[in-house]
């Protein structure tokens, strides 16, 4: 456990040292702030809607995070593979799994810090109207689960290549399926197939949590993708050993 935290701390420091963290924070706060308060899509900002709801903010964050996370995860392993530092890291007294989990947690922590900084929005909305606390908590929970899912996918994409651009695009490509394509297919198909795509679609599960219904089905969905992603990353790291 200690080794995991050492990795997490280094990665987190590295985010802040290289300005990536600040750019990401500015982007997330800027986008969500602008679209929530000043000018929402289709005049749906808080003042136009005239409702004390976080719906607009959650919706914008949902899309912003989708594009931001691949940019954070792309370097995690790909860069180490390119510079060769992965060899040094993995020959230390630490297992492949600990490295993967440490890197995963570092990015998740950065996203949590970013989301924490959006709390002033919540406080402001709560002060001008009657805000449903349950909705707020569930909205944030949904965003965190969604972020963790894309981080896990991004980590995997980063582990299969030593090119950061490839890792970035691969994450977006895989993510796009969960984010929107399964959702579109769900609408196009009916019956069993429709249910199947509905089950795979991340947006279905996200919306259900964001609405305030925390169903074990949704939690299991997110957790299984996260664990699968981390597992595949570990496998992909271990593959060096049996390279044929």
């Amino acid at each position: 456990m200690k080794s995991i935290l050492i990795i997490t701390r280094r990665e987190l420091n590295s985010f802040f040292d290289s300005l990536i963290a600040y750019i990401i924070l500015a982007l997330l706060l800027g986008f969500t702030g602008f679209l929530t308060w000043i000018r929402g899509f289709g005049n749906s900002d808080v003042f136009m809607l005239n409702q004390a709801t976080l719906g607009q903010f959650i919706g914008v964050a949902y899309w912003t995070l989708f594009f931001i996370i691949p940019a954070l995860t792309m370097r995690l392993i790909a860069e180490e593979k390119k510079t060769g530092t992965i060899e040094l890291l993995l020959t230390k007294a630490i297992s492949d799994r600990q490295v993967v989990i440490g890197k995963f947690l570092s990015t998740l922590l950065l996203i949590c810090i970013a989301l924490l900084l959006t709390l002033p929005y919540v406080i402001t909305i709560a002060s001008i109207g009657n805000l449903d606390l349950g909705e707020v908590i569930c909205g944030y929970l949904g965003l965190i689960l969604m972020s963790a899912t894309y981080i896990s996918i991004g980590l995997y994409a980063s582990s299969i290549t030593s090119n950061q651009i490839v890792a970035f695009l691969a994450t977006l490509f895989i993510g796009l399926f969960f984010h929107i394509i399964f959702d579109l297919l769900k609408g196009a198909a009916t019956g069993f197939i429709g249910d199947f795509f509905s089950m795979l679609s991340l947006s279905t599960h996200f919306e259900s949590i964001a609405r305030g219904v925390v169903d074990s089905k949704d939690i299991i969905y997110f957790l299984s993708i996260i664990i699968l992603g981390l597992f595949l990353t570990e496998v992909s790291l271990s593959k060096r050993k049996i390279s044929g």
């Binding site: 060899e87 040094l88 230390k92």
Partner: peptide, 27 residues
Amino acid sequence: GYLPESNPLYNDMPVIDYLEFCAALQG
């Protein structure tokens, strides 16, 4: 203790921080 051939290092870390990181990782 291992020194790989190409001597890969984290370029973005100060020397002291890097050595502390390695020491901590080695338990």
